[in-house]
Write a protein that binds this DNA or RNA. Sequence first.
DNA 1: CATATTTATACTCGAAATGAGTATTAAATG
DNA 2: CATTTAATACTCATTTCGAGTATAAATATG
Lengths: 319, 319
Amino acid sequence: MIARDTVVSIGLSAAIVAVEGEQPAVLVVAHAGSHDALPFGPFDPAHHRTLESGLRKWVGEQTRFDLGYTEQLYTFGDKGRHLPSSGLDVRMADGGARMVSVGYLALTRQGQEAPGTQWRGWYHYFPWEDWRDCRPAMIDAVIVPALKKFVKDAPDAKAVELRRARVNVCFGEGWDEERVLERYELLYEAGLVEEFWRDSGRPVKNRLGTAMQFDHRRILATAIARLRGKLKYRPVVFELMAPAFTLLELQRTVEALAGLRLHKQNFRRLVAEQGLVEGTGKFTAATRGRPAELFRFRREVLRERQAPGVRLGRRGKPA
Amino acid sequence: MIARDTVVSIGLSAAIVAVEGEQPAVLVVAHAGSHDALPFGPFDPAHHRTLESGLRKWVGEQTRFDLGYTEQLYTFGDKGRHLPSSGLDVRMADGGARMVSVGYLALTRQGQEAPGTQWRGWYHYFPWEDWRDCRPAMIDAVIVPALKKFVKDAPDAKAVELRRARVNVCFGEGWDEERVLERYELLYEAGLVEEFWRDSGRPVKNRLGTAMQFDHRRILATAIARLRGKLKYRPVVFELMAPAFTLLELQRTVEALAGLRLHKQNFRRLVAEQGLVEGTGKFTAATRGRPAELFRFRREVLRERQAPGVRLGRRGKPA
DNA sequence: CATATTTATACTCGAAATGAGTATTAAATG
DNA sequence: CATTTAATACTCATTTCGAGTATAAATATG
């Protein structure tokens, strides 16, 4: 028998990403007076065969967006932390079932958004993640000192060591642009992020970056991390590009997502060698400087075997 | 209000993996007369704060295993395909809520299993995935011909092209050991796998590999794919090793998981350069051949910054 | 005991990939 | 026409990778 308490509702949240003018942006539902939220809806198992079809359905209704590429990110079920059940969600307000939320990443090109939704640069939520100009000053000015305190305040020597290691991996020497989620979770635990105080019902003491509703900033962090990783071994950037683009535009898009600058000449070499693009023979209407050739994505690479960017070889012959 | 039909049950399934004697094995619940299943249980939101704690709880009860490393894989919600709702599951037998299943990967070392469970080599379920000796003969003998027919039987020219591309990526020239799920899904759609016939309620026509209950083989495919990928950029193999091991044992374990042979000398070079292991000064009690030194995993690498194996450089200076 | 067999480990070497440039070309701007 | 901005070609040293060869240290076997 199914007890009432083995039953949950499923919420679907989507980080819908586009890049416009060198800024990666995410589509948010902005209510006046409350925090931004990701487009968010319930999964209705009676009407949808798969989670993804449910997602496409209400995203279509709510945002008028036709999702192209989508990818499931993670399923969060934490009680009391980050989740709608700890906030105010009408859908849950009648004391109904616990909610579990499934996060998705979707890539589109920016178009006209539906009323109530708007594009917002993702570095508003994660200002420490944009290293394109330089290491963000706030890291040394605010984050590292606060985290040092967090390390010192650990309950015992072992916890100190553990925290020190985490801080070092997240904000120490070197920068792994993929560890977006790890960094956010660390900042959360260290109480540097508004959500921490809200979830624990205490007055807000720190607020790094712009907060979001529920656990949506965590989902967005997961999305960014996933996208930054995927970039390198699957040709997903092209989902974000116009049908024709210059190589510099492509590079700027990748840089915007990765939050890093790349070496121009080598970037071109790489893209060309992989056979990811082909010239169209057309050129940009002159803006400034020498006009650039317009390229298009060679969809064929998807069929031609082996995902571009995939490395790791080292295979030997049978023993 | 929460309508009855917006509510679902959550099932948690775990692919618990260990490697013993060069065979990667997965812990299954084997009922006489029915197919093997992964350890599987409901998520009880009333008693568990997170999905993972729920998982650990009943896995502990059901299998007596203390899970070490765990990782969420994917959440499947397909109706009518692969899922319990299309099979016979006592938990669902009273016509209750739709089930959504969350799959997990867990890594352990093989110990004594609980009654009713047993370790089973994962290549029983995926015989085409083991390329350690050579390209499995069944691929050319059975799979490729059957898939050629599948391509030809596509409804229209466009579908033919799409299918051809998929077949090529999955079983054509080159072998991407990570595409385990893609290959399984292709075999499923082509009706080469027992689950396809079972899910569609027709008599079984083909059965490649050993079938599992519900969608568990799909979850296992996801687990293998994830693990094969993760191996390369995070030191997860060590979760499967004894505290001290020889470099050859380590290599054999990696090979078992990847389903490939590696070049011995280069493998050593790589492992050593990454600083992943350190010698203990002890040597194996002589079996045959020169005794090998015993190594241990240097857990410190996890703190020393940057995940071992991570590549991709190509970062430039600010424009 | 000599020799074959196993396995471990060190070292080499060419090919390819990578990081970091320099040089040259083609336009617009003033 | 010099200057600026950008595109694109080419170079070059370094590192990484793939594929070996060479040597060492044990057991097994005649």
